[in-house]
Amino acid sequence: MLIEVQNLCVGYGNKNVLQDINLSLRKNEIVTIVGPNGSGKTTLFKSIIGSAPISSGKVVISPDLKIGYVPQVLNIDRSLPLTVKRFLSLANNQNKKESLSAEKVLESDELLFKQISTLSGGQLQRVLLARALVNNPDVLLLDEATQGLDQPGSASFYRKIEEIRNDTGCAILMISHDLHVVMSASNRVICLNGHICCQGEPRTVASSPEYKALFGPNVDGTLALYQHNYNNNHNQIER
């Protein structure tokens, strides 16, 4: 067990953002968190990396666990000059052998000497992922990492994630809005809305009424891509 979240509650002020969350992450797993805006997905990530105000419960992290984190956005002040190379070297405790892997993930040397602030969305995404991988992490946390990528871009991004998992055995916990990709690439899906509505294999979650309640009847269309024989009577009656 790499990460175990036990009865976690997180609140800002009087508002409870997360309630009674239980979650565990094992080696080699790809777990995806889906949920509407404001459902506490990013807050859950923040409590795992230790930057959220936990009001009760706890997050147990196995000793010496290395976390590679890919944030949702990276707003770098334009007053800060920063080349990609220097940014990649900012990861803690890296050694020379590992820094090679960053360049491998980048798959290009031309990016190395560019200023971060001049990168396109896709380039920045590659750099952030490379930065997360520099330390050979045991766990990758991806917060809407395909935001701003087009469909082929995000498809190849998810292929890369799966490759990384297969190569290194690191566990992946990600937040995503690409519902159909989630359904095909994850081992487990967690449906979050302040609390965990439902979780399990993609197939199980997709057919649960809680999931439908959250994402509306329209998810049927997306799911059809994944599950051709999928059929739900309740939904048809609603229409």
Partner: peptide, 20 residues
């Protein structure tokens, strides 16, 4: 380095085990 990382993004820093 720690200050730089915290300046860039506090969550990245926290994930590296720093306290911003």
């Amino acid at each position: 380095s720690a200050l730089l990382l915290c300046t860039l993004n506090e969550d990245l820093a926290a994930a590296s085990g720093l306290k911003p």
